[in-house]
């Protein structure tokens, strides 16, 4: 058996497969099928300082090889999370990553400060949610605003800080460099791509929010390209996600430069996908005679 362990910002993951934020709730739901401890880590549902109701339904639309969502960061707020959700995860053998969002620099900082005193292992700063009117993605689309929020958060964040990047930008690597310069310990990418579907019978958008975030296999090549571009321009670790559904995708993403990967929408149609990815990778590494999964990171040989 090959070594699957990876270390990101000093945090040890027993394998490089992480549940993507918003696709694994607060870690309890899929426990009806298998324990959350199969994952190297889990990125919890995006949260904000105050409770958020989220957007009205429909919040989901099917697309070729993918889906759009417009959940809009529905979450109970940080205090309810710390009181009701986090204790239930105590003792689950996996890295816990809190996904944090806000609408102002101050609200991001207040949230991360609160999370810093909790038992979560890492913070993933969500500056890339396309489904909220204020803040969210707005911070992730220019180098200046991304830098400003990371700067403020860095001052109060005692946990390793991952910054999750938006793909809805011209040069994602420039944003990655900007957040690295302000002290981000790692970056994760990609969040969803902004999209839209219209019901031609009613001439209405399928989503009540009109637009939503595209994810699933359809976005995979975009994600691979962006991970590759970012990995070649920053020194901090890159966590790759977007459309990963099978072990081959995970290997490809790591070859592009990802130190670990996240699985999101694939779980909706193949709930055991993360387990299959871990097993498949392991078997492939053995077949290749590769002793340690870290050896494949960034090994793509571009033409």
């Amino acid at each position: 058996m090959a070594g699957l362990g990876v270390k990101i910002c000093g945090v040890e993951f027993k394998n490089p497969v992480i549940a993507a934020s918003g696709c694994f709730g607060f870690g309890q739901e899929y426990a009806k099928m298998y324990p959350a401890s199969v994952f190297g880590g889990i990125s919890l549902k995006g949260m904000t300082f105050e409770e958020r109701q989220g957007n009205p339904p429909p919040r989901i639309a099917e697309t070729p090889s993918g889906m759009l969502n417009s959940v809009g960061l529905q979450n109970p707020g940080v205090e309810a999370f710390l009181k009701h959700e986090l204790p239930a995860l105590k003792g689950v053998d996996t890295v816990l990553i809190a996904n944090a969002a806000g609408s102002t620099v101050e609200s991001y900082a207040a949230l991360v400060e609160r999370l810093s005193d909790s038992d979560v292992d890492m913070v993933e700063l969500n500056i890339s949610c396309p489904n909220v009117k204020q803040g969210g993605a707005a911070f992730g689309v220019t180098c200046e605003s991304a830098a400003s929020v990371v700067k403020a958060v860095r001052k109060v964040c005692k946990k390793p800080l991952i910054v999750k990047l938006s793909p809805n930008v011209t040069d994602i690597a420039a944003i990655a460099q900007a957040v690295e310069a302000e002290g981000a310990d790692a970056v994760s990418l990609i969040n969803t791509l902004l999209g839209m579907r219209i019901d031609i019978k009613t001439r209405r958008p399928v989503l009540k929010n009109n637009v939503g975030g595209l994810s699933g296999p359809a976005v995979f090549p975009v994600a691979v390209r962006m991970v590759w571009q970012v990995a070649s321009r920053v020194k901090i670790p890159v966590i790759g996600l977007g459309g990963i559904e099978k072990w081959q995708d995970a290997v490809e993403m790591m070859m592009a430069g990802a130190s670990a990967i996240q699985v999101g929408a694939a779980m909706f149609y193949d709930p055991y996908a993360p387990i299959k990815i871990i097993d498949g990778m392991n078997q492939w590494l053995d077949e290749q005679g590769i002793k340690d999964v870290n050896e494949i990171v960034g090994t793509v040989q571009p033409w």
């Binding site: 696709c23 694994f24 709730g25 009205p56 429909p58 639309a61 529905q74 909706f268």
Partner: peptide, 17 residues
């Protein structure tokens, strides 16, 4: 009824007021 993703409570898309 509502449109669904995961079906198990993890993705929060199937909202009902």
């Amino acid at each position: 009824e509502e449109r669904m993703g995961c079906g198990i409570g993890a993705c929060l898309v199937c909202a009902c007021k």
